[in-house]
């Protein structure tokens, strides 16, 4: 490995040596930072700033100079609802449908995810045979690509697929799963939990294993019942990890797009359209390209994410200190 990169590094050494002579070792730090800052600057900071320009201008032109200033109109349109509880009363009903979908999606997804990863982690934390194998089994979907995951389940759920065949065999009526709005949504949540569960299981398992054994031994000396041990020791000590898991799952839940888009395409109708897909469709797939609305919506999402991340950082810091 070192041999491979040596020639390249030696070539770079020449200008770097010259710069070191010029700047001194301390200011050379900026040279080391430069490539990273360049990429950060152009592809993260600048977009954040420009996002506000897009959100406050109209038309379907991409170039900023062609876009007339419209102030808060885009936000106004997005928020123009008689009742936020009923997307049909909103000016941009698709957006609000996506918001509703996303809210339901994350509530259910995070709920199931936490419950199932908790159960799995508790079981994997027992003295079981082949623990490594079982842990890998639950973890491996995390490695798969969202598109692959979507296709795996589509193949099972398709009209003539394995699931319907089993139902048929057992004498139940078959269902065209992905053509029913309710089922499509339910399966989307299932798929998402299936996909990400291993990751949270792993974190919880690490949290469980960090609980010192002697605490349990002390509880055993106190003749605590298993249920009490779980309630009074395991759960409280695992709480910080649980909270981290929950916030992380929320942050990722809000950003869900890939697997659901590849799974249902947002359909049937807009039954499984999530917020990020709304942004994608407005900006990049459907004509006219309403960049302003897309940017305004993404700013709203960003606000939620920043708030969630702030909570997360606060919690991690508090955990680290306490």
């Amino acid at each position: 490995m070192l041999k491979l990169i040596t020639p390249f590094m030696q070539i770079v050494d020449v200008p770097m040596r010259a710069l070191q002579g010029l700047l001194g070792p301390r200011r050379l730090a900026w040279v080391f930072l430069l490539p990273n800052l360049f990429v950060f600057g152009f592809f993260t900071f600048l977009p954040v700033i420009l996002n506000f320009f897009y959100a406050t201008t109209g038309s379907d032109h991409i170039l900023l100079q062609d876009r007339p200033f419209v102030g808060m109109t885009n936000f106004g349109q997005l928020m123009n609802c008689q009742s936020y509880l009923d997307p049909n009363t909103c000016q941009i009903d698709v957006f609000w449908r996506a918001v509703h979908n996303t809210l339901w999606f994350i509530v259910l997804q995070v709920g199931f995810m936490v419950v199932f990863s908790m159960i799995t982690a508790l079981i994997l934390n027992r003295k079981i045979r082949a623990r490594g194998f079982f842990r890998a089994v639950f973890f491996f979907p995390v490695l798969l690509s969202p598109v692959v995951v979507a296709l795996v389940w589509k193949w099972i759920l398709q009209d003539q697929g394995a699931l319907n065949a089993v139902l048929d065999y057992l004498g139940y009526p078959t269902v065209n799963w992905l053509l029913s709005p309710t089922w499509a949504f339910a399966w989307s949540i299932f798929l998402s939990v299936w996909f990400h569960m291993g990751f949270y299981t792993l974190i919880l398992l690490a949290g469980l294993q960090a609980i010192p054994r002697d605490v349990y031994e002390a509880a055993a000396m106190d003749a605590a019942s298993p249920w009490r041990v779980f309630r009074k020791i395991t759960l409280p000590l695992l709480m910080p990890t649980m909270v981290v898991v929950m916030v992380l799952a929320l942050i990722k839940g809000v950003q869900t797009f890939d697997e659901i888009y590849a799974f249902t395409g947002g359909g049937p109708g807009s039954a499984t359209t999530l917020v990020i897909q709304y942004i994608y469709q407005n900006g990049f797939s459907a004509a006219p390209r309403l960049f302003g609305l897309a940017s305004a919506a993404s700013i709203l999402v960003a606000i939620v994410l920043v708030a969630l991340t702030a909570v997360q950082l606060w919690i991690t810091r508090r955990n680290a200190n306490g």
Binding site: F40, F42, F43, T44, F45, L46, P47, V48, I49, L50, N51, F53, Y54, I62, L63, L64, Q255, F257, I276, I279, Y280, G283, F284, F291, A294, S295, S298, I299, V301, A302, L305, V306, T309, A310
Partner: peptide, 17 residues
């Protein structure tokens, strides 16, 4: 930048790229 995933800056990112 940890708080700003690329998912929320797609439009301007597209312009810059």
């Amino acid at each position: 930048t940890l708080m700003i995933p690329p998912t929320v800056v797609l439009v301007p990112l597209f312009l810059i790229v």
